[in-house]
């Protein structure tokens, strides 16, 4: 009898753990069944808003698309002296590590206009604050298509107020040195899409900046400087 009583007490005591656990499972199962159609949709949508990696935004970085100071690597840029016989050579595409957004690609030099600027891949604020930026929707030098570079008119591209046809433009990158020659200078509005053509199948360079020069405040006009390819290693796209 005593054994039965103690056994009943034990079962009764276990109920204080087992029943709440069963209730919890049932409550969550019912809740999950009720919200499943919406939760499934939400879970799919949330994949857009959540990443599977840890996010660590440095304290000196306000925008995740803009690397903090010192984050960007400085690739080794071949000097003009190093590039003597390579202008006419072909380099396989596979041998080039394609630049990433914000990477320093090299230098842009227009001696006649006193322009000596660092060249970055990407034309966001960070790139234009540090030099001139290559539009990522265009092509890199040597690819045989349109290369487009932007710069501020009060800093790096201020010298374009002295631009004239026939002046040489040198782009030194980590895979080779390219020379172009200015062929035309035009002023157009910032929304004029006829100012550029990315479907051209020959190497050409477009550099642009705000216009007029030395103006205070923003202007809706842009000065486009067009240049033709003269020399530099050609990227073999078939490789």
């Amino acid at each position: 009898m005593d054994e039965n009583q103690s056994s009943n007490r034990l079962i009764s005591g276990m109920n204080f753990i087992i029943l709440p656990v069963i209730f919890c499972i049932l409550i969550l199962a019912i809740s999950a069944a009720l919200v499943y159609p919406y939760a499934n949709e939400f879970a799919e949508m949330s994949k857009t808003y959540f990443t599977d990696r840890d996010i660590d935004i440095p304290s000196d970085c306000y925008d995740i698309f803009v690397p903090a100071d010192g984050d960007s690597e400085e690739p080794e840029v071949k000097s003009v002296m190093d590039s003597k016989p390579q202008e006419q050579r072909t380099i396989p595409l596979s041998s080039i590590s394609y630049p990433y957004y914000g990477q320093r690609l090299g230098e842009l030099i227009v001696e006649d206009c006193q322009i000596y600027a660092s060249l970055y891949f990407g034309d966001g604020n960070n790139e234009l604050n540090n030099g001139v930026g290559m539009y990522t929707g265009g092509y890199i030098p040597g690819y045989g298509k349109t290369v487009m570079i932007a710069g501020h008119n009060n800093t790096d591209f201020n010298g374009f107020k002295y631009a004239k046809k026939g002046q040489k433009v040198i782009i030194r990158t980590y895979y080779g040195t390219y020379t172009y020659e200015i062929t035309d200078i035009q002023v157009k509005t910032s929304t004029d899409s006829s100012a550029y053509d990315f479907s051209l199948n020959y190497e050409n360079l477009i550099m642009y900046t705000c216009y007029p020069f030395d103006e205070l405040n923003l202007t809706p006009y842009r000065c486009f400087v067009y240049a033709k390819f003269v020399s530099g290693p050609v990227i073999d796209k078939n490789d």
Binding site: T48, D54, I55, I57, Y62, D63, I64, F65
Partner: peptide, 10 residues
């Protein structure tokens, strides 16, 4: 792990 563009929003 939320993807937000700015540190303030994050």
């Amino acid at each position: 792990k939320v993807n937000l563009t700015t540190r303030s929003l994050y």
